[in-house]
């Protein structure tokens, strides 16, 4: 018997009604290929080397020997398998494409908005482009990465996405912020 499945985003119905773009913009990605990679004991440098050597993967620090890997080249359905083939038994791979939601905050006030809820120093000198960290944003744990001087990527557990977007709206109350899906 064949079933038709309807993919629903965690934020469907809560954002996306108004198409507008203000100075600061929070874009919620509809589908991002993501996986957690945990290096096997004693094989951290080897796993890191394999991940970094390949330009298809965006590698973000999560913990010692543990990374959140995003990819724009690979589809959510194939990323984990691709990583599994490349890493072999150097690491364990867990697909997170449907478990987490990726958001991008862009704008001249991006760092100031985040500073209202995140307790790490986001100055470009101490949190440069390419740096990533697991941080607490109010009470929600997120993986925060700086992708350029004025843009940050946030990756959050799917079920916390709505609460995080609400929190960011509050954090941005004194700044000009619009929220929408990245692809309409």
């Amino acid at each position: 018997m064949a079933y038709d499945y309807h993919a629903v985003h965690a934020l469907d119905g809560t954002i996306g009604a108004i198409a507008e773009r203000r100075a600061n913009h929070l874009a919620v990605h509809r589908a991002t290929a993501m996986a957690m990679v945990l290096a096997s004991p004693g094989r951290v440098p080897e796993a890191a080397g394999i991940l970094v050597a390949n330009g298809d993967f965006e590698v973000r620090f999560s913990g010692p020997g543990e990374w959140l890997v995003l990819s724009e080249v690979h589809a959510p359905e194939t990323l984990a398998a691709e990583l599994g083939v490349r890493l072999g038994d150097a690491a364990f791979v867990i697909d997170q494409s449907h478990g987490r939601v990726a958001l991008t905050l862009t704008g001249p006030d991006a760092a100031r908005i985040l500073a209202n809820g995140v307790a790490v120093d986001l100055h470009a000198d101490s949190f440069p482009v390419g740096r990533a960290a697991n941080v607490l944003c109010h009470h929600i744990s997120v993986n925060l990465a700086r992708t350029s001087a004025q843009s940050f990527d946030l990756v959050v557990m799917r079920s916390f996405a709505e609460a995080l977007v609400d929190d960011i709206k509050v954090m941005a109350r004194s700044h000009d912020l619009s929220v929408d899906f990245a692809t309409r």
Binding site: G63, P64, E66, N134, V135, L136, S141
Partner: peptide, 12 residues
């Protein structure tokens, strides 16, 4: 001396 877990960070 206490055991603390960094639950919202590296989880170590």
């Amino acid at each position: 001396r206490e055991h603390w877990q960094h639950v919202a960070g590296c989880r170590r």
